[in-house]
């Protein structure tokens, strides 16, 4: 069977029209959704938590040679971690805030005992560090 008769016999017209509508409809919906995507993201985006504001300028502090000032300056950053925390979490925060020499700073704070070990890998700030 050939010609228009073959198309009709195999339901060709319906397949072509339905297929065209589906692909056109599908991509139109996708196009509409992605055109609104930035608005949706804006709607669902949580307002960034007001993290304890860190008002630098870090460059003014000698983070390695003045651990007391460094501890005072950095302590508010860890408020979300609670009283005890892992050094890895502290390191992550320092990195997130793009603080200079995070690893060396933590070492300096430990050596100066501003970071005190609680055992089991947990640390806390020295209680009287604010007074120093």
């Amino acid at each position: 069977m050939v010609g228009l008769q073959a198309i009709s016999a195999h339901n060709g017209w319906a397949m072509a029209i339905t297929g065209s509508i589906i692909v056109m409809g599908g991509l139109s919906v996708l196009a509409f959704i992605i055109s609104q995507l930035h608005k949706m993201i804006g709607l669902f985006e949580k307002k960034k938590k007001e993290a304890p504001h860190f008002s630098k300028p870090v460059a003014d502090i000698d983070v390695l040679n003045d651990p007391a000032a460094t501890a005072r300056m950095y302590q508010p950053l860890t408020a979300d971690l609670g009283d005890s925390f892992l050094l890895a979490d502290l390191y992550r925060i320092f990195e997130r805030e793009q603080l200079p020499h995070p690893h060396l700073t933590i070492s300096a704070l430990r050596e100066a005992k501003h970071l005190q070990s609680l055992g089991d890998g947990l640390f806390s700030w020295k209680k009287d560090s604010d007074k120093q």
């Binding site: 069977m1 073959a6 060709g12 072509a16 297929g19 065209s20 056109m24 991509l27 996708l30 196009a31």
Partner: peptide
């Protein structure tokens, strides 16, 4: 430029036209 996606959909019409042609050719 999401509106340009519609051109990607339109270009698929060749597929359905050829489907009809191939059926017509047996």
């Amino acid at each position: 430029r999401p509106k340009l996606m519609l051109l990607g959909a339109a270009a698929q019409m060749g597929i359905y036209f050829t489907l009809l042609s191939a059926l017509a050719l047996g």
